[in-house]
């Protein structure tokens, strides 16, 4: 564990909590892509099956459980509790265009052809593209509430911090997880456009992000 990894996990937790509290307190999921949240729940489900097979540390187990509970709770809020405010018309990204290639790639590129490894690889590739429906929805509606942009900022920052963590671990312990690194680079690149808009529009400007 290093500072980049810890900061990344905290950033990830902050993002998930920001989103959950925003929906819970405003009693509305307007502007939020339910599809992305379902994909994130799927990422955690397929990645954290090792909760039942290996014990790494109390921190590892607790964080995995927190991420699982909060992601499913967020999906519940969107599709059940506050489904009246769910904007299904603008949440129109075809997730099958993500699931099919990611599933195929997980079978082709993995560290071991075992169910747990293939599911882990699937979760790594899926996480790289899971934010697509949300970013697509923002381009479609042309705007995003400032809280939603803060959610996206911390979510994008978390994997960027993981990249720093992997650089650190490579130089200090020779650790290199090729699948996670390549996928993490792709995932972070997807946020670059958003990061630019976030800094120029939200932090300096009106506090609301409206796209050109």
């Amino acid at each position: 564990m290093n500072i980049f990894r810890l900061a990344g996990d905290v950033s990830h937790l902050v993002a998930i909590i920001i989103l959950f509290l925003k929906i819970w307190k405003s009693k509305s999921c307007a502007g939020i892509s339910g599809k992305s949240q379902v994909l994130f729940a799927l990422v955690f489900t397929s990645r954290y099956l090792d909760l039942f097979t290996v014990f790494i540390s109390a921190y590892n187990t607790i964080m995995k459980l927190v991420f699982l509970v909060l992601s499913y709770a967020t999906v519940y809020l969107i599709y059940m509790r506050f489904r009246g405010s769910y904007d299904s018309e603008n949440d129109s990204f075809r997730v099958e265009f993500l699931l099919v290639p990611v599933t195929g790639l997980a079978f082709l590129e993995n560290y071991a052809f075992t169910p747990l490894e293939i599911l882990w690889t699937f979760s790594i590739f899926l996480e790289a593209v899971a934010i697509m429906p949300q970013l697509f929805m923002i381009t479609k509606t042309g705007e995003a509430e400032s809280i939603t942009t803060h959610y996206l900022f911390f979510l994008g920052l978390y994997r960027a911090l993981y990249l720093a963590n992997w650089v650190w671990r490579y130089h200090t312990e020779g650790f290199f997880d090729q699948i996670a690194v390549v996928s993490g680079v792709v995932q972070t690149i997807f946020y670059c456009d958003f990061f630019y808009l976030y800094v120029t529009r939200v932090l300096r400007g009106s506090g609301k992000m409206s796209l050109p």
Partner: peptide, 10 residues
């Protein structure tokens, strides 16, 4: 390439 218990990241 980390396998099984070597995967200590979230």
């Amino acid at each position: 390439c980390p396998l099984g218990a070597e995967k200590d990241e979230l």
